[in-house]
């Protein structure tokens, strides 16, 4: 008997990951995702574990290649949207994606910013980004969208003299600082060990 849950986690990757792992602990594994929907089927409690990965900065080829690579390793991989958006034919410029920015559309990584990676639980820890340098790079990819938004909102706040923009900018700043802290921690550790 399958079960469908509706949740929206936005950019809170860790919350989403924790929730999926809790569902797996309770004996439900993911079989499909929609914008808000998660479809589950029963499984042995704790049979699978989940990990989320952010791929919004990757190109279509790169994202697909990475997806296939993970599937080849024996993982099951689902695409997931990070925002709520029901558009078709959307074109979005992502200045944070790489030097010079990148265009994302519905047929590339737009609405496919996240990967949900499922592994059969073998009792060993499950992580996707293990080396400190790779970890720092991963957090950088997560920080940059918020950093862009922060700069933009701060500009609006000053330009329009608006408090509302200022509040949003501050919210972004909190997230930028959170990821910046993770980057610095990984980089500091990388100076001593690998």
């Amino acid at each position: 008997m399958s079960k469908t849950c509706y949740r929206f986690f936005g950019g809170m990757l860790q919350l989403q990951e924790r929730w999926l792992n809790r569902m797996a602990q309770r004996g439900y594994r993911l079989v499909g995702t929609g914008r808000l929907a998660y479809q589950f089927v029963p499984c042995q409690p704790g049979q699978v574990v989940y990990k989320l990965d952010f791929i919004g900065h990757k190109s279509l080829d790169n994202a697909r290649d990475y997806h296939d690579f993970l599937e080849d390793l024996g993982y099951k991989v689902f695409y997931k949207n990070i925002n709520l958006n029901y558009s078709l034919g959307k074109v979005r410029f992502r200045p944070w994606a790489k030097k010079g920015g990148r265009i994302a559309t519905n047929s590339t990584t737009y609405n496919r910013e996240l990967l949900i990676v499922e592994k059969e639980n073998d009792g060993k820890p499950f992580s996707l980004h293990s080396s400190l340098e790779d970890l720092a790079e991963y957090y950088r990819a997560l920080r940059n969208p918020w950093l862009t938004l922060f700069v933009l909102l701060t500009f609006f706040a000053v330009f329009y003299g608006s408090w509302a923009f200022g509040v949003w900018a501050l919210l972004c700043a909190v997230l930028v600082l959170f990821y910046q802290y993770q980057i610095l921690r990984a980089e500091k550790e990388a100076k001593l060990r690998e």
């Binding site: 990475y66 993970l70 996707l128 980004h129």
Partner: peptide, 10 residues
């Protein structure tokens, strides 16, 4: 420990 994402990048 060699994570899949790290291996892919390497």
């Amino acid at each position: 420990e060699l994570g899949a994402g790290t291996l892919y990048g390497a």
